[in-house]
Measured scan of single mutants.
Amino acid sequence: SGNANTETLPSGWEQRKDPHGRTYYVDHNTRTTTWERPQPLPPGWERR
């Protein structure tokens, strides 16, 4: 039932692989990409 990797990503993020097989992350909220895995927001924090 779903990929465990995507469940731990913050809302709006997606994990992808480039043509060389390297994993990167897409932030659909800001339309940016990063090599660093995004950290889920700490409990009690809200994204503004």
Rank of each mutant, 00 (worst) to 15 (best):
S1G: 10
T32S: 11
G21K: 04
T30N: 08
S11W: 11
P38I: 01
G2R: 12
L9R: 04
K17C: 10
Y24D: 02
H28L: 09
A4L: 14
P10T: 00
E46F: 05
P10G: 09
N3V: 07
D27M: 00
R22W: 03
Q15R: 09
H28S: 09
H20Y: 13
P43Q: 13
E14H: 00
H20M: 12
N29G: 08
D18Q: 04
D18A: 02
T33R: 04
T8I: 10
N29L: 05
Y24L: 03
T32M: 10
S1A: 12
P38S: 01
Y25L: 02
T6S: 14
P10W: 00
P42S: 11
P19C: 11
H20Q: 14
L9W: 06
Y25I: 01
R16D: 03
R16Y: 04
Y25A: 03
E36L: 15
G21P: 01
P43A: 12
P43E: 13
A4H: 13
R31T: 04
D18K: 00
R37N: 06
E36A: 10
W13V: 06
R37M: 03
E7S: 06
G44F: 08
P19K: 13
S1R: 00
Y25H: 10
T30D: 04
P19I: 11
G44C: 11
G12L: 02
Y24R: 01
E7V: 08
R22K: 12
W13Q: 01
E7D: 09
E46W: 01
G12I: 00
S11H: 14
T23L: 10
W13N: 05
Q15K: 08
W13F: 05
Y25N: 01
Q15S: 12
T30A: 07
R47F: 06
G44W: 06
P43K: 07
S1Y: 05
H28T: 08
Y24H: 01
S1E: 08
T30V: 02
P40G: 11
D27I: 00
E36Y: 15
W35R: 07
E14N: 02
W45V: 15
P42A: 11
P19Q: 10
N3Q: 07
E46R: 04
S11N: 08
P38R: 02
P43Y: 04
H28N: 09
T6H: 12
P42N: 10
T8E: 14
H28C: 06
E46Y: 05
N5S: 10
P40S: 12
E7C: 08
H20F: 05
W35A: 06
P19E: 11
K17S: 11
D18G: 03
T32H: 02
R16G: 06
S1M: 07
V26A: 01
Y25V: 02
R48S: 15
R31M: 05
N3C: 09
L9V: 07
E36H: 15
N29R: 09
T30C: 04
P19G: 12
A4E: 10
E7M: 07
N3R: 05
N5D: 10
H28K: 08
N5Y: 09
R48G: 15
E14I: 02
T23W: 03
P38H: 02
Q15P: 06
R31W: 02
Y24E: 03
Y25F: 13
P40L: 08
P38K: 01
D27F: 00
N5C: 12
Y24A: 03
T6E: 13
W45G: 15
